[in-house]
Design a protein around this nucleic acid. Sequence first.
DNA 1: GAGCAATCTTGTCATTGGCAAGATTGCTCC
DNA 2: GGAGCAATCTTGCCAATGACAAGATTGCTC
Lengths: 182, 182
Amino acid sequence: MTSTRSYHHGDLRRALLAAAADAMAESGPAALSLRDLARRAGVSHAAPAHHFGDKAGLLTALATQGFELLGEALRAAGDDLRESGVAYVGFAVRHRAHFEVMFRPDLYRADDPDLVAARERAGELLRSGVARHTGREPDVDSLAAWSIVHGFATLWLAGALPARVGPDPEAAARTVIGRLFP
Amino acid sequence: MTSTRSYHHGDLRRALLAAAADAMAESGPAALSLRDLARRAGVSHAAPAHHFGDKAGLLTALATQGFELLGEALRAAGDDLRESGVAYVGFAVRHRAHFEVMFRPDLYRADDPDLVAARERAGELLRSGVARHTGREPDVDSLAAWSIVHGFATLWLAGALPARVGPDPEAAARTVIGRLFP
DNA sequence: GAGCAATCTTGTCATTGGCAAGATTGCTCC
DNA sequence: GGAGCAATCTTGCCAATGACAAGATTGCTC
């Protein structure tokens, strides 16, 4: 993964993104420090700037990667609407750093072309899955479906849910989704 | 509101909380600066420390205030479950800074006694509202209800929803909630 | 192998959060 | 009314951070 080669790191961009995801999963997005990422990657404190410009640039790249990963997760979940919802929650739990950045547009450049494209692709997957399942008013249905899985994932990540929900977020999500699409 | 009196500001704690909510509503929580808040309140850069200790202390107070405001909003919405959900979304939109901090426990001290008490009170209001409405398995129902309104509010604040949802978050929320509790 | 662009480093600056020490104010009690 | 005292606020300082500028090193191209 993070092969610390000789000089000219060789894989700095990828290593920095991975380090950012690790650091944010540990200590939250507020504590993220470019200099700390540089230390983790074994490079100087100014090296990240060349690849990402500034902090917002790095988070833009991380969010873009997140939307691509979400797209993959949704595709892997297949055609079943409920399992797509479970996959959404699973993605949020497994890639919590990506997920948390993706929906915080004040942290990155939301008009970045690559990011917009990746977000559109993931959004289309969500909508098409709902449209396949329900007949009438797919707009409202997809909005409700997105809201319920996004809300569940967010509350889970925030640690806001009571203990009785149990330790398995995907199982709990499946039950909750069943209330919306019986 | 923020009465800048003589020396010994007189209302610094409240003024700083209000300034923090304003600043975060403008530029997001990441850009929050204690020194900027002090400037807005017309005091020195170290004054906030006396009232809140540090940044996490200020955000703990803001989150506590947020849970109290949410409780008031839910009480004002009355007994109807759907209107409670609309009130939840309305609170998030009207007090977006409070809402954003409340569900980001990495920013504050989640074990603060005052905060825990305010959070418990608001959570009980949510659960009791759902329990009044549905008969069976209030746990799952309340989890689904909380998830769908929380998700809708979060997506709205993130600017992630498509334009066709319309300009009125509470009206759109009412429609979405209708899908869960027809 | 020379030239060149990409990559990385060192050095610097303004800003920030946090701490320590001191000044000012308002309250209490005699 | 005033002395003492605690709360409040200020000034001064330090380490860490993000961002920028200028220079060094590497690898690619011709």
